[in-house]
């Protein structure tokens, strides 16, 4: 019994020694990704140019960066799907530090709404980085426009727990509005580190054939009593019958 244990140990030892160069197990890093010099609150218009700048680093040798552009239309079926912006691009890299600069053309026509970039990085040994996701809004002029008269989002907006959150203003569209989505979720700070479950969500289907405007005061938003105090993101998304989404995002302070 002792002999077989010794043999086993010997073989394991044999396997682990004789290392001429250590195995590269360190993942590469996406240091920073900027679109038009911004890393958040990115808005692009149809036909625009988006200037991409991604900074990368690895301990030994970089290999490839992959960029995916994909919509975030919540998986619902939409209208003119052929003009949704979908793109996959792979950039070849080398060295231990590299910056990828690229100029992307936002297509026109394009369905307006929330999209995201996803960046993935791999090094020459096959180690994968954490991926980096950046949300952005695409506008084409035909999406819903928001005219919020109250509350005043230029300064801090309190949202007391257990109480109704009243809004005033209108959403207007050159087409018939189909769906309004309201969601309050934990605020993604600039470091994009926290994504919580929504504390409030409501979807309103507008069944009319010519709803070109929507009155914000008809929303029945209530801040739940059970919510934790903190800063939250209020998102109102309005979809028209062409499939364009207009997006309104603002910060509220739940207290």
């Amino acid at each position: 019994m002792k002999k077989s244990a010794l043999l086993l140990l010997g073989l394991v030892f044999l396997a682990s020694c004789g290392k001429d160069d250590p195995v590269d197990n360190t993942a590469p890093l996406i240091v920073e990704a900027l679109v038009n010099s911004e890393d958040h609150d990115i808005e692009l218009n149809a036909g625009d140019k988006a200037f991409l700048q991604v900074q990368l680093s690895d301990n030994e040798q970089l290999s490839e960066l992959k960029m995916d552009i994909h919509d975030l239309f919540d998986g619902h079926s939409h209208g003119k799907s052929s003009s949704v912006w979908e793109m996959t691009k792979i950039y070849s890299l080398s060295g231990t530090e590299s910056t990828v600069s690229d100029s992307l053309d936002v297509p026109s026509p394009v369905v307006a709404g929330p999209y995201h970039f996803v960046f993935r990085l791999v090094d020459a040994s096959g180690n994968e980085s954490e991926f980096k996701e950046m949300e952005f809004i695409v506008k084409n002029g035909s999406e819903a426009q928001f005219n919020v008269s109250s509350p005043d989002f230029s300064s801090e907006v309190p949202a007391p727990k257990g109480q109704a959150f009243d809004m005033e203003g209108t959403i207007t569209d050159d087409q018939d509005l189909a769906e309004i989505l309201v969601r309050i979720s934990e605020d993604e700070e600039h470091s994009h580190k926290k994504s919580g479950a929504p504390i409030y969500e409501d979807e309103i289907d507008l069944s009319g054939t010519n709803d070109t405007s929507f009155d914000l005061s008809t929303l029945n938003i209530t801040i739940p009593n059970t919510a934790e105090t903190g800063y939250y993101k209020l998102l109102i998304s309005a979809k028209d019958n062409e499939g364009n989404y207009g997006v309104f995002e603002a910060e509220i302070h739940v207290m």
């Binding site: 290999s63 992959k66 995916d68 791999v122 090094d123 040994s125």
Partner: peptide, 15 residues
């Protein structure tokens, strides 16, 4: 399965 250090050309697919 060995990672190839290349990405898949398929959308939202990894290495």
């Amino acid at each position: 399965l060995r990672p190839s250090a290349r990405f898949s050309p398929l959308p939202e697919a990894g290495q």
